[in-house]
Computed example of a mutant assay.
Amino acid sequence: MRHSPQILHLIQGTTQGVLFSWERETFGEKEWQQLYNYPSYGASLLIQDMGSPELGRVYSLHGEYRFFFLDRKLNLKAGLGAGYIPNTYDPIENPRNTAYGSSFTASILFGLEYRFQRLFDLPLDFKVGTFLVHYSNGKTKSPNTSTNNYGLQAGLNYNLSETKKEYNTSSLEPISKDWTWDILAASGANDSGIWGEANEAFLTLTTSVNKRLSHRSGLSLGLDAFFTPSVKTFIQYRAAAFPELDNFQGDEDWRRVGLFLGHELYLGGWSVMSQIGYYVYYPIDYLNREYIKVGLRRYITDKFYVSIVLKSHYSKAEAIEYGIGIRL
């Protein structure tokens, strides 16, 4: 997909690959399965030739959920995982690969599928759909223009055995909707966006107040404090190399503070979080003043959780944050 002028020279043909998948159905043994119409879950391995010698192949492994609609004829698959790229950017050996700066990358997979069931009154289904695969390292290492690969799919499915499926429809236990308070510390490594610069570790401190709205969702309002040394490297580089562009002196404050509004979608012990933020302390113009966070949380107990989050400024990724938090 031509999402950036920097990758036009890399789009040389269609991609080819093979996808191996394992999937398991749910029948409502857990409450969250009933809430989401008994989704299935599984894993997949995708081996993909990206259609140009500069990009080469990507090997990615995903964890997936499949959600069903319209009497289970329509389904949405969402997968998140990691990919391995043997043929990355190299200033001498592979300078034209402006998409992949690191050997390891995040991999996101979405698929939408419609199934026509029991053709000719046989245990035979026909399915048709579309998919999107996104590879990006979240600015862990530049260049990171990333790629988006989309396509159509069609196929036949034959059920080797047919058994009546019984779904649990027990009543849901009530949940507490009290206000809570979160404290979260997250870290990782990124670079300034200057090709050839080393990664630098960063620290993000977050606090928020939260309100559970239902079994499915909750809202939060909070503050982020970003301590990102790669921003300091960016300031010093621009001050030395392009002083006329930004009027940087080289000693500007590189720290930022943001105010955010967030949403959390609960899936049992997991949750999908999304946040929209705005820097209330923004001493220099770096990327954009608005930022977005999307990611996953895994609750170890009712109070402790770990998280993985992608922070971006619209389409420009800044970092992947690995965090640990407590909810009081």
Rank of each mutant, 00 (worst) to 15 (best):
T145D: 08
M1S: 09
G269S: 14
K303P: 02
I284H: 06
K211R: 14
S136R: 07
A106G: 15
P174R: 08
E197L: 10
P123G: 10
Q153N: 10
L8H: 09
K139Y: 03
T147N: 08
N137K: 05
E166R: 13
S307M: 09
K293N: 14
A240M: 04
Y291T: 10
K211C: 03
R57A: 07
S214F: 07
P53T: 07
A78S: 11
L223P: 00
R255F: 01
S52Q: 01
N144Y: 11
G250K: 00
S60L: 00
R118K: 14
H134Y: 12
E244H: 01
N168R: 14
E162T: 15
E318D: 15
T206H: 10
S103K: 10
L10D: 09
I292E: 12
F27V: 11
L265A: 10
A201W: 09
K293D: 10
R24Y: 11
M50V: 06
L259N: 03
I92S: 08
R72Q: 13
D302R: 13
K139R: 15
H62G: 03
I194Y: 10
G51E: 00
E64Y: 01
R57P: 05
G269R: 15
Y305R: 07
Q16Y: 14
A317P: 12
Y158M: 09
I194L: 15
Y65T: 13
R2G: 15
G17L: 02
Y286H: 08
L19V: 14
L74N: 06
N288F: 09
T233Y: 01
S208V: 03
K141V: 14
P243G: 02
T180F: 13
T14R: 08
S170Q: 13
D125M: 01
A241W: 00
N149R: 08
S307W: 09
Y266A: 01
A319R: 03
F242E: 10
F68N: 00
N148Y: 11
P123K: 07
N157G: 12
A82G: 15
Q153S: 08
G81Y: 04
F248K: 07
L10H: 07
H9E: 14
L124C: 08
V58L: 04
G188Y: 05
G28T: 02
G323E: 01
M273F: 12
A201R: 13
L132Y: 03
G81W: 05
T301E: 06
A78W: 05
G56W: 02
I194Q: 15
Y167Q: 09
A319Q: 08
Q33D: 04
T26E: 06
L219A: 02
A106P: 02
A319H: 03
L259A: 13
L8D: 13
G13F: 08
L203H: 07
T26D: 01
I276Q: 09
S102M: 04
Y135S: 02
G56Y: 00
L261V: 08
L8S: 11
L223H: 02
G79M: 00
R216N: 04
A106D: 12
S214L: 02
G151W: 03
E31Q: 07
K177N: 14
T163E: 13
L296Y: 04
I92L: 11
S103H: 15
Y65L: 06
A198Y: 03
K316I: 12
G295C: 05
H62I: 05
E200C: 03
H3S: 11
L287N: 12
Y279S: 10
G28A: 06
L259S: 04
D49K: 04
E244L: 02
P39W: 08
A198L: 09
G222D: 01
P53C: 03
I85Y: 02
R327C: 05
W270G: 02
W179S: 11
